[in-house]
Nucleic acid binder design. Sequence first.
DNA 1: CGGTGTGAAAGTTTTCACAGCG
DNA 2: CGCTGTGAAAACTTTCACACCG
Lengths: 238, 238
Amino acid sequence: MAESRPQSAQPGELPSDAGVPKVVVSRLSLYLRELQRLETAGQQTISSGQLGTLLGFSDAQVRKDLGFFGQFGYPGVGYRCDELIRAMRDILGTNQAWNVVMVGVGNLGQALLGYRGFGRQNFTIVAAFDADPAKVGHVVQGLTIQPLDELAATVRERHVRLGMIVVPAARAQEVADRLVAAGVEGIVNFAPVTLTLPPHVQNVGVDLAIELEQLSFAVTAKLAKAAEFPPATGSPGG
Amino acid sequence: MAESRPQSAQPGELPSDAGVPKVVVSRLSLYLRELQRLETAGQQTISSGQLGTLLGFSDAQVRKDLGFFGQFGYPGVGYRCDELIRAMRDILGTNQAWNVVMVGVGNLGQALLGYRGFGRQNFTIVAAFDADPAKVGHVVQGLTIQPLDELAATVRERHVRLGMIVVPAARAQEVADRLVAAGVEGIVNFAPVTLTLPPHVQNVGVDLAIELEQLSFAVTAKLAKAAEFPPATGSPGG
DNA sequence: CGGTGTGAAAGTTTTCACAGCG
DNA sequence: CGCTGTGAAAACTTTCACACCG
């Protein structure tokens, strides 16, 4: 074991988890994803500058972000990929296993049940529910679809802490209410509505149409800008 | 027609599209989504305070965000839903139709092909591609899966400006390169990797595992915070 | 009144720049 | 050297507060 390990970074004694900006946490996930790729590719260490370049951030930003959680680097060397991955997973919580329930087993729900990427980060979908009696009892990706009545019991018995909502917009809020009542602590919502939740329940929304909308804005804005500052016609001088 | 329409907000003469913060644009999409829901529910006007409350923002923030693009409100009244929807769609670019291509027709790709939410915002997936010869020629959601060789020609012929990458991580960069070469201006990437793209191509990444990771952090941090400031034991005094 | 639009203040995040370390 | 960790400065975003409008 690395006895000269820099200080901190053990779970449970991270410096004040309080008040870390959300945007920092979202970059942390990107750092982790990249680090895992690099480690698989056999890279042992990486500097803040290299990591930043790969993701489009500055070296200072990478260091500041990590600085919220402790000291992980070796001056003159950089960060050891394996150590940093472990530390980041401790911070993000993915060194422990998370059981997840899914509500809504339509097209998208079925696709998500088959997605292998969740497991790699220690998330397991342990049960799937649907309000449609015609779907209940069918087996999808190894899970038997259950009726919503069984939600609370399953959440309790399987120690489920997170839920995914994959139902139509009109049903999303009532499903969210049931997940909250069942004791879930966080929700990923794929329905295109804003949920009203008690403050102790975390939530992340994923709206696929909005992602495209953001792109259409960016593409349009780019064009508008280009028209505003037209590039010189003809070949640029040496 | 509303002849007393406040100024501005006509497409093509929006005040300096330059330098609108990304976070503002992402809230714009949320405003629009909520406005469309309200209009469907029959609501004619809404104030910045009401809209903000529904989404968890302050009234001032709503007004400042809109202020980047023009003046849309009526003092003492608020905003007219229909007008504001039209203005926001002009800004975001979704009053015009967008043709989109999808590359990668696995579980997730097929689910996305069937997703009705895109159409509602004026996005149409006009073609789907897959590298697997066994899939080429099959019809999914009314589209015949094409080989990647045909990508460039289809993009040109169908005036496609946006692409969706729904292939495994290992293939994402090469697919991105082909989309760029074909002339696409923006990419939504569902593969869990950061793409390297020329600066004139916009891109948005959607990583489903990362969304869960953000939740697991939030849930864990909440707990850590609660331990740091334990709530008083026993019943709170009247 | 009730509500917008907007400067100015407060707060937050990013970048700079450099001491210190192996 | 090369690179981290971190205060201090700069840039940016949010909130405040109020003139003005119908």
